[in-house]
Amino acid sequence: MTDYALLAGQLFNGVSVASILLLAALGLALSFGLMRVINMAHGEMLMVGGYLSFLTYRLAPARLGFGLALIAAFVGAAAFGALLELVLIRRLYGRPLDTLLATWGVSLALQQAARSIFGAIGVEVTAPKWLAGSFTVKGGLMAGFNLPYVRLFIIALAVFVLGGVWLFIQRTRLGLYVRAVHQDREMAEALGVNTGLVDLVIFALGTGVAGLAGSVLAFIAPVTPTVGQSYIVYAFLVVILGGLGSLLGTLLAAAVVGLFSAGAQIFTSVSFADVLLLMFVIGFIQFRPSGIFAARGRALEEG
C-alpha cells in the first residue's frame, strides 16, 4: 500500500464517519433549531435503530431484510421520538434544564433496557452480500486504496437523507410551516399553523434519521447498549460547530469533525485525536460562538 493510498483510505473513512455523524446530528440540529430543546436521549435513537435492524434481519426473509431493516429503524426510532415528544418534551416546554435532565433519564433507562434484553455484549449484523465486498485500486499511485461498499453506501444514504430533508423543508407546505415556526412561532400559530404538530413531526423526523444512522452503523460495528453514547458526543460537537439549527452548517461541521478525527488518527492515537478535536472545537467557538452559521432565523433558510 502506498502512502497516498493510506492517506486516501483514511480520508475516505473520514467521509464515511462524517456521513454517520451527519445523520446522527441532523435531528439534534433540527429540534434545537425549532424547539430549543436538547434531547440527551438522541444517541439512544441510534441504538434503537441498530437493534431494530438486528431484529429485522433475524425475523425477515433474507432478500427483504436489508430494506426492511432500514425502514424499521427509521419508523421505529421516529415513533419512539414522537412518543418522547408527546409524553415528556412537550410538557417541559420552556424548561430547558428539566428537559435535559428528563431526557438524560430516558437515555439511561433505554441503555439499561437494552442491556436487559440483548445483553451487555454487542450483537452483530452482517451486511448483505452485495454490500460486503470492496473496491480496491490495483496499481499506480493509489495502489492498495480500498473502498468498502458498505461505507460507500453509508455516504450515499447520508447524501440522500440530507437532500430529502432539504427538499421537505424548502418545497413542501409542512416545510414552509417549519420555516415559519422557526422564524416566528407566535405569528405562525396566529395564522393557523398547528405548531405543536410541526414540533412533533420535526422531532420524529430527527429521531428517525438517527435511527437510520444506527441501522447503517450496525454494518461497521456491533450494536451495543452504549453505541449511542460513543457517537452522540461527536454529534453534539457537530451541532455546536455547525450552528444550532442549520442544515448546511451541520453538513460542513460533520465533514470537519469526521475528517479531522480520521486525519489526526494517521499521526496519533485515537484518544489523542479526540483531545485535538476538542481543542479545535473550543478554539473555533472562541471566534464564532454561534457556529459556522448563526442559529437564529437564517439557519433553516440557507439550507
Binding site: 407546505r173 414552509l176 416566528d184 395564522l191 399553523v193 432565523g297
Partner: peptide, 18 residues
C-alpha cells in the same frame, strides 16, 4: 410580524394555513 426570511408569496401562503 412578517417572516423575514420567507418571500412575500410564502408569507401570504401561510395565511392559507388556517
Amino acid at each position: 410580524g412578517i417572516f423575514p426570511h420567507l418571500t412575500v408569496r410564502e408569507n401570504l401562503r401561510l395565511g392559507l394555513a388556517a
